[in-house]
Nucleic acid binder design. Structure first.
Length: 873
RNA sequence: GGGGGAUUAGCUCAGUUGGCUAGAGCGUUUGACUGGCAGUCAAAAGGUCGACGGUUCGAUUCCGUUAUUCUCCA
């Protein structure tokens, strides 16, 4: 069975068990501060488990794109070295939300594996939770009992808390789990060692394929477990491993999911897969990482230097490193593989197809930039090696290696490799120590203590009323304290609120809430697991009862104006530049908007003007907002509503329309476009390959911006103009300035020539040395230098000192002819230092020319006398 | 969010006890050689040494602030 059919068979099977099939959520997580990437199939249902959101149905199944770069069994640095670890993978899963529990979950898992896929029963083992006395938890006899219906007791193994008790994190829903393992070894190997001894032992052919989690507890912040009112099932089956099992392969990388990619890598690099271990590893690394990076970019997460973008950058760079070292690729290479991946997976994941150009461009650009980083690092490393090598030293400083890594991004394993070629090693302990120091510093900075929610009303849900109201009466339903950097912040959730929580690029509302005798400021509003969280610096004295919630109207309206103008801008860009313009990022505040979008080149000033005109026309047309809050998604897309890649949409969506601009959007908007006033683009720049950024202002912010510009212009006009053409006058001024500068230069040269001929007359011949020691009048220290250099060119065996008082300070220049320096060992630097003591200063320079300065001009004659004395004897 | 680095000619970069008329290669312009092109040789133009402030007789160089950017960590 090929992988495509396999994926479909899973979904079909659970559909037949009345599960609702839902699409994969984006791989990049947006509204969960504890998570950057979807790392398990259950992520998109987290709110349902936490009780803060609704599941799409009581029975659900899907295949979910996941990304893991760290965790107990998954370190990025290990991917590619074995046959079964990945960064990006698909997770097949079925869920029950308060519906069926252990019995059905076990029965159907067994049925699917053995009846549908016909996996041989004698290859399967299952595990159940053995219990944990320290937590007062018994063995999961329930699950074991159901298993005994299907599988021999001897194949039911017990696992400890580490393997068979699943937790989402330090806090939250959890429960015992039951895993299904498959033994793929040959008959003879299996006869020698019983498979059950290899379960959970990191054997590449005895692997876990399915984990059935039975969620029955909630872990509180103090570590206690409490029983949940409703019980859930959460299962996850690694698609790549399942494909390996079904296709009878020894490695995930041998399945039809990876082979086309690996064969393309082999072809392009002129190697053969399976003939050389390091090259094989490199090919697996590249195949795996290309998938991860491509899907991430398709979901809107570009490589960058912070957060999720940084993780993506690291993954891509690891691939480049392997391609560089083991496949000899010194030019961008990985982007050329995307075509194959797209033709293999594009059907199941249309986002790859649609964004081919941008994904290739971004990968190419990243590769190129990292290869530059590498060559720079190699240069620095080679210099460092050249410095210590002659000393016979063969241990390279870990601190220097760390600096190379930390500051220049040069990977430590490359440092080690290059050192090895030079017969050296790196002090790894020192390196690790430096890294540890840096990690601690960062961790210290980020330390945040989160207390448990105090729940005042168990049953209440939050209602958002902010589309219609800016103030309302409400009650607190839960609150908690957060401590970060010695500051306390309180999170409050109300049963109804007009406050918009930050999402979709739009910043959260500010405002306050009050009772008869107290008023508490709300400094920000955020969304977390579907809750609208109000941030305050203090708690009200009394937490129960009614509060009056009031949104900062001015800020909200200005934010709404900027959000509406973002839609108009998006629309105008597509009209002016073409429909390849896709939103890649958006920030909407009360002072400006920032809009990132796919486009291949800098916008010309004509294009910017056209976009501005278009948006302002739309504003003047004064189109009314037409809002649909619960439109079926099919109907919305029929209307031509623009949806975003990397966004998760439910069945019902909110549609925002202004004239022909139609978008899916949860933000707040102006009632009509006329309210926006005027729109002005302030910045247009590139942020990544194929991605441009526009910043703009609208309404009051635009007025302020324009007035500032006009005021600036005014000031310039007043400074330079006596009325008439300011531009022309500026040109004249600049020309004149240039001309005068040249003239001054001429005059100074002439003055210097004059001075020079006067000075020449004062030269004293002392035993063949032409001594010139004079006090002169010049306006600028540079002139002393000029004269000195000119005389040097004209007079043989010159020994010169010139002194001058300029702006109350003493300046001295000393010049010796090259012959004097070479033959007599004269040194201008030392000489100038010696005589500078008379002017209370210091100086220096080279052997043939030096300068000094001092605070005491009265000492100049003595300094010059001393110079004469030094040379005369 | 925290740490480290970079910013010098159109481009890529050198430049250490603070004083070198701030340099190189490529590119540009001009001239010579050549029938023309390519090329070779010679010369020239091109710099607020990111911005602001401080220390100093003197700052591209040291210190602080800031902007931009790279990089590591979270």
């Amino acid at each position: 069975m090929n992988s495509k059919a396999l994926r479909q068979s899973f979904l079909d099977f659970f559909e037949s068990k009345t599960h609702k099939i839902v699409p994969s959520a984006p791989m990049v997580v947006k509204d969960d501060p504890t998570l950057m990437f979807t790392n398990a199939g259950m992520n998109q249902f987290k709110n349902a488990f936490l009780g803060t959101g609704q599941a799409p149905a009581s029975r659900v199944a899907d295949t979910q794109k996941c990304l893991r770069v760290s965790g107990k069994h998954n370190d990025l640095e290990e991917v590619g070295h074995d046959t079964y670890h990945h960064t990006m993978f698909e997770m097949l899963g079925n869920w029950s939300f308060g519906d069926y529990f252990k019995q059905e979950a076990i029965e159907w898992a067994w049925e699917y594996l053995t009846e549908v896929l016909k996996i041989e029963k004698h290859r399967l083992f299952v595990t159940v939770f053995t219990g944990a006395p320290d937590e007062n938890l018994e063995r999961d006899n329930e699950a074991a009992g159901f298993w005994e219906k299907w599988i021999d007791k001897s194949r039911i193994l017990e696992g400890s808390k580490k393997d068979n008790f699943w937790e989402m994190g330090d806090q939250g829903p959890c429960g015992p789990c039951s895993e299904i393992h498959v033994d793929l070894r040959s008959d003879s190997e299996r006869a020698q060692i019983d498979g059950k001894n290899l379960v959970n032992n990191d054997h590449p052919q005895v692997v876990e394929i399915w984990n059935l989690v039975f969620i029955q507890f909630n872990r509180k912040a103090n570590g206690e477990l409490e029983k949940l009112p409703a019980q859930h099932v959460d299962t996850g089956m690694g698609f790549e491993r399942l494909a390996m099992t079904v296709q009878g392969k020894q490695s995930n990388y041998d399945t039809d999911i990876f082979q086309p990619l690996i064969q393309e890598i082999a072809k392009l690099s002129g190697k053969t897969y399976g003939t050389n271990e390091p090259a094989d590893i490199a090919m697996r690394v590249i195949a795996d990482h290309l998938r991860a990076v491509s899907f991430s970019i398709a979901d809107g997460q570009l490589p960058s230097n912070t957060g999720a973008g940084y993780v993506i950058r690291r993954i891509l760079r690891r691939a480049v490193r392997y391609a560089y070292t083991f496949l000899g690729q010194e030019q961008p290479f990985i982007y050329r593989l995307f075509g194959v991946m797209q033709s293999e997976m594009g059907n199941a994941f249309p986002e790859l197809q649609k964004q081919k150009d941008i994904i290739e461009k971004v990968i190419f650009e990243e590769e190129q930039s990292f290869l530059r980083t590498l060559s720079k690092g190699i240069k620095i490393l080679e210099q460092a090696i050249a410095k210590i090598k002659p000393n016979g030293q063969n241990v390279f400083s870990g601190d220097v290696a760390f600096e190379l890594y930390d500051t220049y991004g040069f990977p430590i394993d490359l440092t080690e490799l290059i050192l090895k070629e030079n017969g050296m090693t790196v002090d790894k302990a020192q390196f690790d120590k430096a890294l540890e120091v840096q990690k601690n510093r960062s961790r210290q900075d980020a330390v945040v203590a989160t207390e448990d929610w105090t729940i005042l009303d168990e049953t209440a849900q939050t209602e958002f009323v902010g589309y219609d109201l800016l103030e309302t009466q409400s009650k607190i339903i839960r609150y908690r304290k957060i401590t970060a950097k010695g500051k306390n912040i309180y999170h409050l959730v109300f049963d109804r609120t007009p406050f918009y929580g930050e999402s979709g690029g739009q910043t959260g509302d500010k405002g306050y809430f009050e009772t008869a005798n107290q008023r508490v400021e709300i400094i920000d509003t955020q969304k977390e697991h579907g809750l609208i969280v109000h941030l305050c610096n203090e708690l009200p004295q009394k937490l129960t009862g009614e509060f009056h919630l009031v949104v900062d109207t001015r800020k909200r309206l200005s934010t709404a104006n900027h959000h509406t103008s973002t839609h108009l801008l998006h629309f105008a860009l597509r009209q002016v530049l073409g429909t390849h313009v896709e939103q890649k990022g958006s920030l909407v505040t009360d002072t400006h908007l920032r809009f990132d979008f796919a486009h291949y080149q800098k916008l010309s000033s004509d294009e910017i003007l056209l976009v501005e005109q278009k948006v302002n026309q739309l504003i003047r047309d004064n189109a009314n907002l037409s809002e649909h809050r619960d439109m079926p998604i099919a109907q919305a897309s029929q209307m031509g509503a623009m949806a975003l890649f990397g966004e998760k949409y439910g069945d019902k969506v909110r549609v925002i329309r202004f004239a022909d601009s139609v978008e899916l959007c949860g933000g707040t908007h102006a009632p009509s476009t006329g309210q926006l006033g005027v729109f002005k683009i302030t910045v247009e720049t590139a942020i990544a390959a194929g991605i441009r950024r526009i910043e703009a202002v609208v309404g009051e912010a635009a007025q302020k911006y324009i007035w500032n510009q006009l005021d600036f212009l005014n000031q310039i006009e007043q400074k330079v103009s006596t009325g008439g053409d300011t531009m022309k006058q500026l040109d004249t001024l600049l020309d004149e300035n240039q001309r005068l500068k040249k003239q001054i230069e001429q005059f100074q040269k002439q003055a210097a020539r004059q001075l020079k001929s006067e000075l020449k007359a004062k030269i004293i011949d002392n035993k063949g040395i032409q001594i010139l020691a004079e006090l002169v009048h010049v306006d600028e220290a540079g002139m002393l230098k000029d004269i000195a250099f000119q005389l040097k060119g004209e007079i043989q065996s010159l020994a010169l000192v010139l002194g001058a008082e300029i702006e109350g300070k003493a300046h001295i220049a000393v010049m010796f002819a090259d012959s004097l320096v070479a033959d007599k060992g004269l040194n201008a630097g030392q000489t100038v230092k010696a005589i500078a003591k008379h002017i209370q200063g210091g100086g220096g320079g080279q052997a043939f020319f030096a300068t000094a300065g001092g605070q005491n001009p009265k000492g100049l004659p003595q300094a010059i006398e001393e110079f004469k004395k030094m040379l005369m004897n």
